[in-house]
């Protein structure tokens, strides 16, 4: 290739690479809102599967906190948590078993939690959900995947200071850092729990990473071998 060819390749190839970098890696022109988790509780959210002094994992403690503080309005169906008023209804226990199936996530079976299809649940809980709507203005959403949609920073700030993050929201502040010194820790545990529902545990994540690296290395090496093989073959066939 002559000098002009190299310049053309750099201009066209380079700008194509920059273009896709902007689209698929980092776009400085795009407006993104940032919410930060407080330094002191970052560790709690970082690894929800870590055991605490009580012998339970952070995620399990977060689950209990969620049931106590959140489940009067919010369900988390992907982990078998439904409105508190429904959970206490003995009829629901039967429906859970007949219409739902035990929660099975990332290779772990949770025998005592049931995933019930949305329409079955909403039909059963119709009255309760409508009551919530009457008092709050809208049905509080199911928060199964909210961690993926909003990220930990938003959830943490929103649960602590709902009105500040989303003005006009009907969500009440359940935790007060001024009155309760453990409020931030509790909120962090709830966020950690929501994270544990939506992300694979460290062992599974490690498996995925190893699998990814092996596959990528395989393809790079296979490409190199094909290239080498081609060169030898072409030499033998007389195509320089």
């Amino acid at each position: 290739m002559n000098a002009w060819g190299i310049i053309k390749t750099i201009i066209i190839g380079g700008s194509t690479l920059v273009f896709f970098f902007l689209l698929w890696f980092y776009n400085p022109f795009k407006h993104v809102e940032h919410y930060e988790v407080d330094e002191e509780v970052k560790q709690i959210i970082a690894n929800p599967w870590k055991k605490t002094e009580s012998g339970k994992t952070i995620a399990e403690e977060g689950r209990e906190l969620f049931i106590n503080f959140c489940s009067s309005c919010h369900s988390l169906r992907y982990d078998g948590i439904y409105l508190m008023s429904i959970q206490t209804n003995p009829k629901w226990k039967k429906i859970e078993k007949s219409a739902g199936r035990p929660v099975y996530r990332h290779g772990i079976l949770y025998k005592d939690r049931f995933f019930v299809p949305k329409d079955v649940y909403e039909a059963f809980a119709h009255d309760e959900l409508q009551q919530l709507k009457a008092s709050l203005g809208q049905v509080p959403p199911d928060v199964s995947t909210l961690y993926l949609a909003r990220g930990e920073g938003y959830l943490y700030q929103f649960i602590l200071y709902p009105g500040k993050v989303l003005p006009g929201t009907s969500m009440p502040p359940m935790f007060n850092p001024q009155a309760d010194p453990q409020a931030k820790e509790k909120v962090a545990k709830i966020v950690a729990y929501m994270k544990s529902v939506n992300t694979p545990p460290p062992k599974e994540q490690m498996k995925r990473n190893i699998m990814g690296i092996l596959i990528i290395v395989y393809f790079i090496v296979a490409g190199l071998l094909l290239w080498k093989y081609r060169e030898n073959l072409l030499k033998r066939l007389g195509y320089h």
């Binding site: 949609a149 990814g212 990528i216 393809f219 790079i220 296979a222 490409g223 190199l224 094909l226």
Partner: peptide, 30 residues
């Protein structure tokens, strides 16, 4: 064939380690 292999290496880099731009967070809200 060799180019395809290297292309697949890039492809699987996105599949395993950089999926957030292809499964955007906003779409995890029903």
């Amino acid at each position: 064939g060799a180019y395809v292999m290297w292309y697949l290496a890039v492809f699987f880099f996105f599949v395993f380690f950089h999926i957030s731009h292809f499964l955007p967070p906003d779409n995890f809200e029903p």
